[in-house]
């Protein structure tokens, strides 16, 4: 089965074809644009996304599943919602060929899966996309962080953890507490003593 579409947003019509669900591991893989293998990811709220195999390999979790031969039917990802998965898939697509996962790929390459793989540094455009990608509110950022953690995707983890770290960097103590919903468990005396000890930080 092949389809001319490869964009992640246009995946639905492809995978809802009944053939996809009943495939056995022996059957030839799904092919996307350019004849490359694609896999289908299914979010917890039953949304499906078609992903280039090369992109999916940015996640160690997905990679393990694919190597275990589970890449032929839709892969259920029950703890990711559709909107989150859509963002993640888009990030993977933008970072195709990112050298952050190049060394891991070399093993797999022996099997001939990635003949056309060429590592390349993220361009300014990709970096701009990354910034945009994480310019979201706290809850959305946490969703992405949890997704990165679950998918074990180093690039995604990098971008999201950096965003979380950046968020608190120029906040006051009170703002940090409010942003993360943390309870101040210091006694007033304790906190005053610590602030005195760290006087340099409050200049």
């Amino acid at each position: 089965m092949s389809s001319g579409d490869s964009g992640p947003s246009s995946s639905k019509q492809l995978v809802q074809q009944p053939a996809a669900a009943g495939r056995s591991p022996n059957q030839p893989p799904l092919l996307g644009a350019g004849g490359r293998k694609v896999i289908v990811l299914k979010s917890g709220d039953e949304e499906e996304f078609e992903v280039d195999l090369l992109d999916a390999m940015q996640s160690r979790t997905l990679r393990r599943a694919i190597e275990d031969g589970c890449g032929d039917g839709p892969m259920p990802l029950p703890n990711l919602t559709g909107p989150v998965l859509a963002k993640v898939v888009e990030l993977f697509r933008r970072h195709r060929g990112d050298p952050r996962w190049a060394d891991e790929l070399q093993e797999t390459e022996k099997e001939g899966m990635f003949k056309d793989y060429a590592p390349q540094k993220p361009t300014a455009e990709v970096k701009g996309f990354d910034r945009e990608f994480v310019s979201v509110d706290r809850d959305a950022l946490f969703d992405l962080l949890r997704a990165a953690n679950f998918l074990e995707a180093p690039g995604l983890l990098d971008v999201t953890c950096d965003a979380a770290a950046d968020a608190v960097m120029n906040m006051t103590v009170e703002e940090v507490r409010e942003y993360f919903g943390l309870v101040n468990d210091y006694t007033p005396e304790e906190e005053a003593a610590l602030r005195k000890q760290h006087e340099w930080a409050f200049q």
């Binding site: 006051t172 610590l194 930080a201």
Partner: peptide, 18 residues
Amino acid sequence: ICLARISYGYHGILECVS
């Protein structure tokens, strides 16, 4: 992992959080 990305100059404030 998120907190480990924060450099030492910020620790004074962040230690006062909790």
